[in-house]
Every structure is written in C-alpha cells, then in structure tokens.
C-alpha cells in the first residue's frame, strides 16, 4: 500500500509539467480509485502502475523519470476511458513524462530506437513510414513541407544520427 501524509506533497514537479502541457493540471483530480490500473494492459505484464506514477508526480518525486516503468505504457487510452473523472489524460501525461526523461538523458538511447531511425528516414524522404506504399507516392515538393514542419524535432536527430553512424561505419569498413 502506497501511503503518504500531507506533508509529503510538493507541487514543484507538478507545476513544471503543467507549464509544459497545460492539460496535466487535471491529474490533481485523481481520486486514486485504481480503475486505470485494473484495466491497464501494461500493468498485467510489467510494474507500470498509473496510480503510483500520478502519486509520485504529486509528491514531486522525479525518480519517476528514471524508472523504466513509464516506457511500458501502451498508450491504448483505456485509462482515459475508464477514469471516472472527465479530463484526466493519462496517455498525454506519460508522453510528457517520457519527454522530460528524454531531455534529462534517462530515456531510451537512440540505439534502442533503431527501428524508428528507418521509419523516420522514410517519412522525411517519402512522406510514408513504410517503403513501397500502396498507390502513388507523395510528390517531391510536398516532402519539403513535411521536413519544414519537422524542423528541430527529434525525428530529424535520429535520422541525422543514423547518417553519421552509417558514414563512420563505412569509413571503418574502408580502413
């Protein structure tokens, strides 16, 4: 049983998250009923527990960013649907926490995202995630639009990181 006294509440972390994603302000309405945990696919196969995550955030416990738990969320939105409160958007909170985790360098390394390197590359070069899509390809001039939209996004960093990795690998192979 996860018990806390009032003196343990610390709003700094919560306020940081709300500053970044305003919708997170609603997590304060959580009544700890546990419906989200009971219906969560990730909770059945890992130690991911939405109620604990929210509890940590409301106590200002940033260890939640280091925990591997948040990376087990299925983003299936079941918790959002079964939550008796109206506007608690747990999947959005998890995405926000993962973002903070990335920023602090705790998240998965780009190597762990290697499947996404290929997908990112294809999206930025062709506008689709898989090669040889069904039907006509996106015209070249439209692909520039997508690259402009994705400026400064991680999708470009993983793509660029993969290019430098490939180059250094080629150099190694040559030598």
């Amino acid at each position: 049983m996860d018990e806390s006294s009032n003196s343990e509440w610390n709003w700094d972390f919560y306020e940081e998250l709300v500053d970044d994603v305003e919708e997170n302000k609603n997590i304060i309405q959580c009544i700890s009923c546990g419906k989200c945990v009971g219906d969560c696919p990730a909770s059945k196969v890992s130690s991911f527990n939405v109620r604990k995550v929210i509890g940590k955030v409301l106590r200002g416990d940033k260890s939640v960013l280091k925990d591997s738990d948040i990376w087990y969320c299925y983003l299936c939105e079941r918790c959002k649907r079964v939550c008796p409160k109206d506007n608690i958007n747990i999947p959005l909170l998890i995405i926000n926490l993962r973002n903070e985790s990335f920023k602090k360098g705790y998240g998965p390394k780009y190597n762990d995202l290697r499947k996404y390197v290929e997908m990112s590359e294809r999206f930025l070069k062709t506008g689709v995630v898989l090669d040889e899509p069904l039907g006509k390809k996106l015209p070249a001039e439209r692909i520039d639009e997508l690259n402009e939209i994705c400026n400064f996004a991680r999708i470009k960093y993983v793509f660029k990181a993969s290019k430098s990795t490939t180059k250094s690998k080629k150099r190694k192979d040559k030598s």
């Binding site: 999206f123 506008g127 689709v128 439209r142």
Partner: peptide, 25 residues
C-alpha cells in the same frame, strides 16, 4: 485517394519524436 496525403505520423508522436504542434501541423 489523395496523392498529397502523408502518413498520419501518430507513431512518431507516440514515441516523442515530434511535438504536439508538429503532429497537429
């Protein structure tokens, strides 16, 4: 079908590779 349609990009948003605004755009 629409030739100018790109992929929905949901997979990149869900893996924190694009922001909400970029996903929206």
């Amino acid at each position: 079908t629409c030739t100018n349609q790109s992929c929905c990009s949901g997979t990149f948003f869900q893996r924190n590779l694009i922001t909400r605004a970029q996903f929206g755009a």
